[in-house]
């Protein structure tokens, strides 16, 4: 007792301290920091698109169509003479929000379904997972098409459609990790302490199955952007003059032999987003796992 009072230095760090600790570990990972920097730049340009972009995204210049990248148009212009750089910048708003919100939506819903199915098992598991199997049996893009066709085109409906169509994947992954964790003795220990189901799931099970969720969702953002692009391409997603990376990519496809820069730049934007997310996701996964602390 005396010992405890005499040593205030041994007082624990608390929640804030642990967040700082994760950040400190993340900072040591250079690759993850590069990923974070890429994403920060992308998000900043998305936020400040009106200030950063040299031209409005829909300003046409019909005398100057298909111009090669030059000082005036760094990324060149498209078939209507619109500045590709400005369209990539404005498009980041749509693409990033579709990517992140759709994935966020499906991780939360799919994760919850998977956690409940894995944790309670038996009939609940069967009902939920068979329903997920039904969803899974429909190709993702077809499912998204039918949902967006039912809801009507538009940014929000697009996000919902993409989100719903990727729910089963997350449900499966989370269920599998929950199954592997729920029989560990520390779950029994939590129960012996009197913890309810919700506390066991959120405090003891979910944190221990973060790793596959993080990996899957960083890849998922890429898939979501591409699915959204596909939907835009067939006219069910973002409607034409609005710039969106996927739509630009598919719009430039027809001209790829002669005017490759029309597809290159929106493609690169997608590549960098995914790259940044993946390396940041990997770093985050490692930083969040206290077991890996000393190994680096």
């Amino acid at each position: 007792m005396n010992d405890a009072n005499a040593k205030p230095a041994a007082a624990r760090r608390g929640r804030k301290g642990r967040v700082l600790e994760v950040w400190r570990r993340l900072k040591r990972n250079r690759l993850a920091m590069a990923g974070l920097a890429i994403l920060a730049v992308l998000f900043l340009t998305a936020l400040l698109a009106d200030l950063v972009a040299p031209f409005p995204s829909d300003k046409q210049d019909l005398e100057n169509t298909f111009s090669f990248p030059s000082r005036a148009h760094l990324f060149g212009t498209d078939e209507f003479g619109r500045d590709i750089l400005s369209r990539v910048i404005h498009g980041s708003r749509i693409s990033l929000s579709v990517g992140f919100l759709a994935v966020g939506f499906s991780v939360v819903i799919g994760g919850a379904i998977g956690a409940v199915a894995g944790f309670y098992g038996k009939r609940i598991d069967n009902v939920l997972m068979r329903f997920m199997d039904v969803l899974m049996s429909i190709p993702q893009i077809l499912l998204a098409i039918s949902i967006v066709a039912a809801l009507g085109p538009g940014l929000w409906n697009l996000m919902i459609a993409v989100g719903i169509s990727s729910i089963p994947g997350y449900a499966r992954i989370v269920r599998a990790s929950v199954l592997s964790i729920k029989d560990r003795e520390y779950i029994e220990a939590a129960r012996a302490a009197g913890s309810g189901d919700a506390r066991i799931i959120f405090r003891h099970i979910v944190p221990n199955c973060l790793a596959p969720i993080i990996v899957q969702s960083t890849l998922g953002v890429a898939t979501a952007i591409l699915t959204a692009a596909g939907l835009s391409f067939i006219g069910l997603g973002i409607q034409p003059p609005t710039p969106e990376w996927g739509a630009m990519l598919s719009g430039g496809r027809g001209y790829i032999r002669d005017y490759w820069y029309m597809t290159l730049f929106p493609g690169l934007a997608i590549v960098f987003t995914i790259l940044g997310l993946n390396v940041l996701g990997d770093g985050l996964r490692d930083a969040l796992d206290p077991r890996l602390k000393s190994s680096r």
Partner: peptide
């Protein structure tokens, strides 16, 4: 429990592990 390796949640530090029953 028997196995002190699997009976402790690997994500929680000592203080949290011991405080868990108190909080619950």
């Amino acid at each position: 429990f028997q196995d002190p390796y699997s009976s402790l949640n690997p994500r929680l530090p000592v203080a949290e592990l011991i405080a868990e029953p108190l909080r619950v």
